[in-house]
Write a protein that binds this DNA or RNA. Structure first.
Lengths: 341, 341
DNA sequence: AGTGGCATCCAAAGCGCTTTCAATTGTGTA
DNA sequence: TACACAATTGAAAGCGCTTTGGATGCCACT
């Protein structure tokens, strides 16, 4: 059932039927009723591809999903998607997801944009000096970046959390508890948030004349295995750190396993603060020793970005171009005073 | 840059250029080279919406993502998606994801199908007597169901794991260890896998003349909180069960917390077997007491379903219509002989 | 010389929708 | 009565691509 058939069935022109369906004012109310009724009876649905072709809009937002054989799926991605979805469903928007090798993200993003399948783009996993920014700017398609790109002019639309502030505050808390030997368990080095978090730690330490040793920084994928490995490494350093900052509760999960295996007590021998994206599976309060965290909901960020993206497409603007969300520092039991030597 | 412009630039007809690009044999090799060269220089990409409109194919598979405010995102969904993506990226396929309220899945699926945006459908979260099957059959669009629908004629293409067999085997193992008081911590009652797993448990118990008490069965969303609640409930039953079957490592996560909180020892006071979807965050061997599990990789299932779906669209068939994967029973430390009373 | 076959190429007709421009009718006004 | 004007409706031109059904040369072959 297509427009033509429907209009013939009604004895109307395609024009009028189309207008009736799309809420144009110049069609008689009685006629519109008749059309709506027929739609209900026949189950007619406009062909989106044709609509897209004719209007240039399709009610969809595009995103790239990094994937590869062996590439571990990322809980953060799923959680974020849930946020986007929560908002999208309210506006009858859908997603077009382009799976891509992590090394091929720029090209994948371009393909997605040019494909004509999407109205707006969502971009994540931002890196320092991210090459995608230049491409996005040349594209004349709305987009919002989740995160920022360290080293690039901040003249693009983004939503980010204050990563530097979060880790600055966390470090200060640990300093106040008397800790002097710090370690940072971070995400991959090229990622923007990792850079900023590290800076936060460094500048808080610097205020006390302390530095972050190279051996006390790990950069790795945010999986629990990597957390375990990193912590095992930290624990066998001659000057074992007593204060650990951790870029994700996922990493913390592994890290804590290492602490337990070493027979140490979290919150006493070792203090740990992790960043909490509010993942459903990893509630900080559910850890055997509840975790002190810097918190910011990834899902909420997804909702917000979807709002901005969809709003822009629908021209329901204007939206703030750049948002920086503060994180909350929530103190639980995994932090305590530095142990007496 | 579109086909018309490109062809004018080359002094060729759109027809020839189109053929050159799509590998038709009747175009001169020299011409094809010239076209390919021009494409490279201009960065021309065909408009997918137009291609879709003209051919009816778009290189995409559609799926519905259940979502709602407060609807907890599902790790299983993300992991499965990773599997689909791993295969899709090899064929330059993408996904169209339609977020939908869990109560609205049938309608969402229909919208997705009729939209003309997808070539094939993937359907999950199957229920007993699932109403989507009838709709899918009427659709003349390829689809594969992940799971099955208990109570419906099994005449649709699916990939499922042997849920009943898995839980039958798991129950048998516990029976051999001498357990007689069982509890089942299951997924939502209306879901197909939950029905079959329960049946597996019941039939293994029946062979020994045992039954599964109503109070010893919980049906709930597969979150760790629910696991905790269910286990707390089991533990305060007058005839406390000693053997727990658990539909997911996610549930097990909470369940074990409850066991610990009660001061009981897993694998001694309480034996537990969980179904392991091979989620990256929840490795059974990483639990403080490594978990005995029935295992089947969700991600591998995603890869396989993508293969079938894409293969069918590309007419690279034929594919088996129905696949039933066996699970592995892997014995670790969470199961032990029944404790002496 | 006449014919058929092959290799290339093109014009034009859709695919299903939106939207511009125009036509038709009925109504109020001069 | 004649005319401007609002209210409705349609015909047809795209959107950018694929594909059918010819064209056009050019060659070998009878």
């Amino acid at each position: 059932m297509n427009l033509k058939q429907l209009s013939e069935l009604l004895g109307l022109s395609q024009t009028t039927v189309s207008r009736a369906l799309n809420g144009y004012p110049e069609v008689n109310e009685a006629t519109r009723e008749r059309v709506l009724q027929a739609v209900k009876e026949t189950g007619y649905r406009p062909n989106k591809a044709a609509q897209r072709l004719a209007t240039g809009k399709a009610g969809s937002i595009g995103l790239v999903m990094p994937t590869a054989p062996g590439h571990q799926s990322d809980v953060h991605f799923g959680e974020f998607l849930a946020g986007l979805g929560e908002e999208a469903v309210r506006h009858d928007f859908h997603f077009v997801i382009m799976p891509a090798d992590p090394d091929d993200e720029v090209a994948a993003l371009r393909r997605l944009a040019i494909s004509g399948n999407v109205d707006a783009l969502f971009v994540a996993y931002m890196r320092g000096h991210d090459p995608r920014l230049a491409m996005l700017k040349s594209l004349s398609m709305p987009y919002v970046v989740h995160g920022r790109s360290f080293g690039s002019e901040p003249d693009y639309p983004y939503l980010d959390i204050d990563n530097e502030g979060a880790f600055y505050d966390a470090t200060r808390l640990l300093l106040q508890l008397g800790h002097t030997r710090f370690a940072l368990m971070n995400g991959p080095m090229h990622l923007d948030f990792a850079i900023r978090r590290k800076n936060g730690v460094i500048s808080a330490l610097a205020e006390r004349g302390l530095t972050l040793e190279d051996g006390c920084t790990s950069h790795a994928l945010m999986t629990d295995e990597q957390g375990l490995l990193a912590m095992e490494h930290f624990l066998q350093l001659p000057e074992r750190p007593t204060a650990i900052l951790c870029s994700s509760t996922v990493l913390a999960l592994g890290a804590i396993r290492a602490v337990n295996q070493a027979g140490l007590r979290l919150g006493e021998d070792i203090s740990l603060i992790a960043h909490d994206d509010v993942l459903p599976l990893l509630k900080p309060e559910s850890f055997s020793v509840p975790l002190t965290t810097t918190r910011s909901s990834l899902r909420a960020a997804g909702v917000r970005i979807a709002q901005r993206l969809i709003g822009t497409v629908k021209q329901a603007g204007p939206f703030p171009d750049q948002e920086l969300w503060k994180t909350e520092l929530i103190v639980r039991a995994s932090t305590g005073p530095v142990p007496q030597a």
